[in-house]
Design a protein around this nucleic acid. Structure first.
Lengths: 226, 226
DNA sequence: CGAATTTCTCAGCCTCTGCTCAGCTTCAGC
DNA sequence: GCTGAAGCTGAGCAGAGGCTGAGAAATTCG
């Protein structure tokens, strides 16, 4: 079942929504401010975010903008106070997928969440990823560099997917090992280097420029040019 | 391992938290009032401060505000009494990074500390830093002076990041060595001078004015003008 | 059960970083 | 202006960090 992240600074509302959604069978995450929200999206990759507009710290719009600025297309349903109509426009323009006015009936929230999740082509982690001319489709396991398809093993695929979910972000060796291999701590092996080597070989087989860059002393980045 | 400063005027709670955190492998500092807290932050540069709201002398909010007023961005986790909800807003607006209501389970405090320190893609530790026309982005490791990008090695990056987290603050040689090199004591080497030299060369490569100033007999400051 | 594929380990090689050192420059106090 | 301390800098080196090929172990599949 899908994962929903609820972001609201009102603990009572938070609890109430959490119970409603849990009862409905969703996996539920919560956050009570913008920072938490961003961290949770990053770490947990929910299918949909229910985002309150008015919050201390970075407000809902702010969170939404930052999310979209990093290329994140996670579904977002904005909540806002009754008559802030101009918010609606701003919110939708910033990339919200839907919009609900407080106060609302829990049933209506449920209906809208279901509606959004039904939208075609948007299942949790199976959205096709692209960066530069790299293409990776989790649903079909298709991988291409430009028009040249190439084959990956399961581990290679997982690794490339992780990199492509965080384009331009420098990922530390630990973050990658944690995410792809699930290591709590893996002393001194070089399995990561080896797999980076495999991916490079396959993504550059026809002499294309390197997309997986080494950041010495830190980790790796998916980025164009050296 | 990270350093945590606990600030609370209840000696029993202080001891308890200290034991819990020590057991978890943190380096632990304590303070029982606002003055001590500020002194410790200044002198020891902890990674995170667990700050009680209600204290004799300058209270938690006061401490937080003073810290932020000097541009200090150290992670702060506020503790406050049960239902002082309006505090929460004030606290987060004043720049607290997280917030926990008393009474709480030690495990929850631990979880939140870990969460704050982890902060992978998005979060305090990864927010882009600017000072004057210097720009440093920990997430992408991008560094620029105005529009001119430049490359840094891992150590150089750590050093510049530390300076940029404490703009206009005079940092002693010991504070810097402690934070960037993790020295308990570094007798008489000049590695810091050498690295300051590297940074100056790279940040002034196109003849820009100096931003890293020497404070003779003390240390260095990130500040405009000479 | 045997073959093929995938995952991982290991050792050797190479590059760049981090650091030391020695000599030079700058500064403050006299 | 002299002098010693503090700070700067260029040169060079040892080793950490990273890459690769070969092959062992594990897993999958017929």
């Amino acid at each position: 079942m899908a994962t929903v992240l609820i972001v609201d600074d009102d603990p009572k509302l938070l609890k109430m929504l959490q119970r409603t959604l849990l009862y409905e069978g969703f996996r539920v995450l919560t956050a009570s401010n913008g920072h938490e929200a961003l961290a949770q999206v990053q770490a947990q990759r929910p299918d949909i975010v229910v985002l309150d507009w008015l919050m201390p710290g970075p407000d809902g719009l702010n969170v939404l903008q930052r999310l979209r600025a990093t290329g994140d297309r996670t579904l977002v349903l904005m909540l806002t106070a009754r008559d802030a109509v101009e918010h609606r426009v701003e919110g939708l323009e910033a990339g919200a997928d839907d919009y609900l006015v407080k106060p609302f009936a829990p049933a209506e929230l449920l209906a809208r969440i279901h509606a959004l999740l039904r939208r075609p082509g948007i299942g949790a982690g199976d959205e096709p990823l692209t960066y530069s001319n790299l293409y990776l489709n989790p649903a079909t396991r298709e991988t291409r560099r430009g028009s040249r398809p190439f084959e990956l093993t399961a581990k290679e695929f997982e690794l490339l997917r992780f990199l492509m979910r965080h384009p331009r972000q420098v990922l530390t060796r630990e973050q990658i090992l944690q995410a792809v291999w699930g290591y709590d701590f893996g002393g001194d092996d070089n399995v990561l280097e080896v797999y980076i080597g495999y991916l490079r070989k396959k993504t550059e087989a026809a002499g294309e420029p390197r997309l997986i860059q080494t950041v010495r002393g830190v980790g790796y980045v998916l980025r164009e040019e050296g």
